[in-house]
Design a protein around this nucleic acid. Structure first.
Lengths: 341, 341
DNA sequence: TCAACCAGTGCAATCGATTACATACTCGCA
DNA sequence: TGCGAGTATGTAATCGATTGCACTGGTTGA
């Protein structure tokens, strides 16, 4: 804050009314007569007055901010989501704090601490790995309903969740490969214990079984959503005696690593092996080959989470935005084709 | 804010002292006798007291937050920078607001508005395209020294700047290609008018001239840092009668688009054409081929900008962190080799 | 012995808004 | 005519901290 900004007192003086009236003009115009209202609005304009958010927040016992916990800002997947979130909060007077939980790991008490310090009114967690302790502290504080999980979530939590339909995504991927003629389909998973890993893997396994496709234990390859894990998976596949003809990856980044690794090992994609990703990040259409993948509607995910949280915060108690699953789409590009005979 | 959090009043009562004393224990411990201090600290612990930042900020006439203006959060380049920034602010009690100036374009008055509303104490702008009007309004407010430009900047502005040594980067890239034996070197620029475009292009042109390499006007291809513009550049190159043997791209993303476009057109990288990028984003080492590029130290850039701004905000007036240029490095990978004879 | 000084602490104003309650005035109706 | 209801506005408390100023009691030096 700089300079002598006009305060509500200044405006009140100029308009020859009390500060209460000025305040009402701003937040509850109907309570004020039209004549007075116009006088006040004119004074506000003349003074270049703007509400001081800090004072307002103090009086109203709120923080005026929400925190977004992102596992890794470097992963392009999250950008579209953040855009959706800020779109969802546009028009509200909440500020959006963003923190990278990998670059700046949170202490167990950090999240609840933000609430206690009066720094935030709510949070959106894109990180399902928040420690149980941290979450319990928040629950004890009574803010469980103001922590919306987005994309990832924690099992058994009482926190609202917005996520994509991961099982459906896996089903679409396997269905696509099956329709192309693939029978031997492998999967590179996400990190152990991750809820997305579980949902996508189980969706994949279920669909494979439903279609009567063969399953080998080593066709489920452990990954962690990273480029590197895709590379590692490529090495594993190159060494297999009975190689799959197609691989469904738990993330686009994994698919990139995988394709790069396969190429180095002398296998071409899609001629020798088809690859399907998950997410549809911007890069995917420009990769060589352009990646067939499952699109998550990141803007929508973000927006919904924002709306859900906003609903909790402004709690007209009735109109709840419900926790929800967002649909996914299969995007067919160049990294899949019928298996060579 | 939730529940009855203990206030400074509660602590004062428990410790049988005045609120002034409690406040002093927290911010100026030396003023308080050791006996009293311990009593107060004990009371603070017992009450689970935490300073209410909003009240503190109101009283101290500050916002307790800084704004980071990112052109496009989706560009992986920015993530490392953000990590550096938040590292730089760690330990301070400033909150970090992040906004995407593409997803949520700022009105001319928005930035100065943030200051006027008491929402922020300072800003870091990664976006050199802020409108002159917007910047003038900030300058008029007297906050010019609290807006640090990072990576990009505006000409003729009185704003502090932290940036990479772009000219040196271009020199390194051309030098590398020259050393490999390339003589016909093209350049895909950034968007028109962008300061980085200018610095990198001029660095490239100067170095090419210094080395006595041939220059053709159509070897300077207009781009805009995007994947798409890389693709477009590939088409241009494929249509050339006198093709360059190497291309220096103004960004890694451009290089990806270019390589993908060249491959589609039947040219291999690096066998037929060598490609150098700029930035060294995470992806670059996993692209096929792994990308030779100019690394910017993103963590350091972010950290320096944060320190510079923090210095302005806490202004012990003496110890200024100076605006600075950060060094860059050439990272040689697989996308460059000697030209085929 | 007394003034000057210092360390340690409290009182109360202050930051800039919101809002419960009180007040004043105008109608409408019995 | 008088009273209750309704409308428009003002008064002042309040949110939870920080800090200038005043006060107290003890030490020091002349």
């Amino acid at each position: 804050m700089i300079q002598k900004t006009a305060t509500i007192q200044d405006v009140a003086r100029m308009a020859q009314v009390s500060t209460a009236t000025v305040s009402r003009v701003l937040s509850n115009p109907d309570l004020v007569s039209e004549r007075t209202r116009n006088t006040v609005l004119e004074a506000i304009r003349a003074a270049g007055y703007r509400v001081n958010q800090t004072a307002r927040n103090l009086r109203m016992k709120r923080a005026g901010a929400v925190l977004v916990l992102v596992p890794n800002l470097g992963k392009p997947f999250y950008s579209g989501i953040l855009a959706g979130i800020s779109e969802g909060f546009a028009g509200s007077d909440y500020a959006i704090l963003i923190t990278d939980t990998e670059a700046q790991p949170l202490q167990d008490s950090a999240l609840s601490g933000y609430f206690l310090d009066g720094r935030i009114d709510g949070a959106i967690a894109l990180d399902g790995r928040l420690s149980p302790d941290a979450l319990r502290q928040c629950a004890d504080l009574g803010v469980a309903n103001r922590i919306v999980f987005l994309c990832e979530w924690v099992e058994g939590g009482k926190f609202p969740v917005i996520s994509s339909d991961n099982v459906e995504g896996a089903r679409l991927a396997i269905g696509h490969l099956h329709a192309l003629g693939h029978r031997k389909i492998a999967h590179v998973t996400g990190p152990d214990g991750n809820v997305l890993t579980i949902a996508r893997r189980e969706g994949m396994v279920a669909e494979r079984a439903r279609l009567g496709l063969p399953a080998r234990p080593d066709w489920i390859i452990r990954g962690d959503f990273s480029l590197e894990s895709g590379r590692d998976a490529a090495r594993r596949i190159l060494n297999m005696s009975d190689r799959p003809t197609a691989v469904f990856c738990s993330a686009d980044m994994v698919a990139f690593g995988l394709i790069s690794g396969l190429l180095e090992g002398g296998l071409r994609v899609p001629e020798d092996i088809s690859v399907v990703g998950f997410d549809d990040i911007e890069m995917s259409q420009f990769y060589v080959p352009a990646l067939t993948t499952i699109r998550q509607d990141r803007a929508l995910l973000g927006r919904r989470a924002a709306e859900l949280l906003l609903g909790e915060l402004t709690k007209s108690s009735s109109e709840d935005v419900q926790p929800a699953q967002i649909g996914v789409d299969l995007i067919v590009r160049a990294s899949t084709q019928a298996p060579s005979p």
